[in-house]
Amino acid sequence: MSETPDQVPAARAYQGGMSQAGRPQPANLADILERILDKGIIIAGDIQVNLLDIELLTIKIRLLVVSVDKAQEMGIDWWRHDPMLSGRAQALEDENRELRERVDELESGKGS
């Protein structure tokens, strides 16, 4: 491999368009991690790698994989929420809040 790991900034964007020449497609890291952490053969070695740590790790990776810029661009602030919350649950919650705001607005006579 001809990569230059020393030049990799910690908060690099792993999605589209940020690939440096000669490096593997950045999005691949997420796919690789999905496979080498979740799939494959799990045989306990002599060195204990705590399973819970691996789970926490994937959550942390999800945070890191999306760079801060990209995250803000996408309106991401999910680390303030339950990390297990699904996108759909979040969308419903958002819609709920929007609806409540709109109803308040209408009831106060501004919206009609």
């Binding site: 080498i36 952490l37 799939k39 494959g40 053969i41 799990i42 045989i43 070695g45 002599d46 060195i47």
Partner: peptide, 11 residues
């Protein structure tokens, strides 16, 4: 190939 999970280490 039977791939191992990352960090399967023996003494």
């Amino acid at each position: 190939v039977a791939p191992m999970r990352l960090a399967t280490i023996f003494l």
